[in-house]
Design a protein around this nucleic acid. Structure first.
Lengths: 97, 97
DNA sequence: GAAATATTTGTCTAATCTTGTCAAATTAAA
DNA sequence: TTTAATTTGACAAGATTAGACAAATATTTC
């Protein structure tokens, strides 16, 4: 169950690349990529797609990881988090009623 | 499976109150409450709690509805929405690994 | 159906949050 | 200990959102 950050960090290391290199390939500041990897900045969807292309990762999987990061972010510190997820799931599946 | 807006609207009508009255009781602009009810403005958590108290609703339930609104908002238009929810659920239950 | 009342909508400003960038600090490697 | 890599902090700019108000629309009442 990967976060976006861990995924791209692992991938980068697999390929033996430095942040600097990814940064220049994607034209994104390397400090920013470092932050993506550590999860203290959230990339835009366009950036997620850039990463997926660059690392040849399944786009949907990477987007899913990124979305789940965002969900978890909005739920942080909420004790009703789990219930909210269940409710959201029902609402998405069957519509809000 | 209620949204925050529907919940407070229903509750208000149950009690036969006008927006104006709720607005003055909670000290919130009535146009804003109208927007909350229709779901085109998202209340703060403090406001959610105000509503729960005022209508004597279960705080956790109302917060859950409000959180699920926010989740659905972040997932809007995403085809990976359902998967992202499942992933988020796993991560919250068992931690991110 | 006219007047009064209730609700909704549109728009603007201010406040809040988020982004990307740069420089400095830290950590790791050679 | 020098060099290279990564992380951190802080800031300015940009984007997003909230709340306020007025105007428009809808609903109710007589």
């Amino acid at each position: 169950m990967q976060t976006f950050g861990k995924t791209i960090k692992t991938e980068r290391e697999k390929k033996g690349l430095f942040l600097r290199q990814v940064a220049s390939a994607l034209d994104v500041d390397q400090a920013l990529i470092s932050k993506f990897e550590k999860g203290d900045r959230k990339p835009s969807k366009e950036q997620v797609i850039k990463f997926a292309n660059f690392f040849k990762l399944d786009k949907d999987k990477l987007i899913t990881a990124w979305l789940s990061d965002k969900i978890i972010y909005t739920l942080q510190g909420e004790k009703n988090a789990e219930n909210a997820l269940k409710v959201a799931e029902q609402r998405i599946k069957y519509g809000t009623e």
